[in-house]
Design a protein around this nucleic acid. Structure first.
Lengths: 112, 112
DNA sequence: CGTGTAAGGAATTCTGACACG
DNA sequence: CGTGTAAGGAATTCTGACACG
C-alpha cells in the first residue's frame, strides 16, 4: 500500500534456495527469466535474488507449464493481469484524492 | 497464529545476504550463533539459512552490542521474553478451549 | 569477550554453447 | 520450444585456529 516493501516482496533468496522451494531446476528458473516471466534483482556480486512473491509466481508458472501452456502465452496472461491492476491502482489513487478533499471540507478547512 | 509458517519465519536467506541486510560481518553473525543468540537452520548442503525474523533479531542484537550489552546478557533478556510469551500462549490456549465449550453450548450441542 | 584474518576445501552461481526434438 | 549437460572461472560458505586485548 506504500513505498516501503514487505517481506513478501524483498528480493533476498538465492537461485539454489528457490530451486528447493519450487522443485524447478536452476536451468528452468533462468530460462523463465530469459523469457521475461520473472525478474530477479542482482546482488553486489551479480547473483540472482528472488522474493517470496517470485517464488509464488514460479510455482504458478510450473503449474501452467504442466498444463502445456507455452511461455509466451504465460507472459501474455501476466501482462493482462498487470494492466488490470494498474487500472485499479489509478482508480484508487483518484478515490484517495477525492476522499482527501471531502475530509478537508468536513473539518471545516478552506479549499486550496 | 497456527502451524503454517509465514514469509517472516521461513528460513531461506544465506549468510551473505543477511550480512548485507544487517551490516554485520559474517564472523559476527556466526559468533552470535555460537553464543546461542540466533538459531539458523541448515540447507541440504549445510549452509546456514536465516528468516526475516532472524534478521530483525540480529539488528536488535547489533543495537544492544553498541550500547555495550554483553552477549550473555542479551541471551538472558531473550530467555525472559521467551518465558513470558510461552506463558501467554498457554493462557490463550486455555481460553480457546473454554470458548470452544461455550460455543458448543450456545449451538445446543451435547457436552462430551 | 568479541571480532579480524589467513587457510584450504567443498559447494554455488554465472555465462555461452551444444544437444535433442 | 523447453530443458539437460559439460566447461571453466569467480565468488560463497564452512570449520578450526591464531591474534589482540
Amino acid at each position: 500500500m506504500e513505498s516501503e516493501y514487505s517481506y513478501k516482496e524483498r528480493k533476498v533468496i538465492s537461485i539454489g534456495a528457490v530451486s528447493e522451494l519450487t522443485g524447478l531446476s536452476e536451468r528452468q528458473i533462468r530460462y523463465y527469466e530469459e523469457r521475461k516471466l520473472i525478474f530477479p534483482s542482482r546482488s553486489n556480486r551479480g547473483n540472482r535474488k528472488y522474493s517470496f512473491s517470485d517464488v509464488e509466481r514460479l510455482i504458478d508458472i510450473a503449474n501452467k507449464r504442466e498444463e502445456g501452456v507455452r511461455t509466451d502465452e504465460i507472459r501474455m496472461e501476466y501482462k493482462k493481469e498487470k494492466t488490470r491492476e494498474d487500472r485499479e491502482t489509478r482508480k484508487k489513487m483518484i478515490q484517495g484524492q477525492l476522499n482527501a478533499r471531502f475530509m478537508t471540507q468536513k473539518n471545516g478547512k478552506r479549499f486550496s
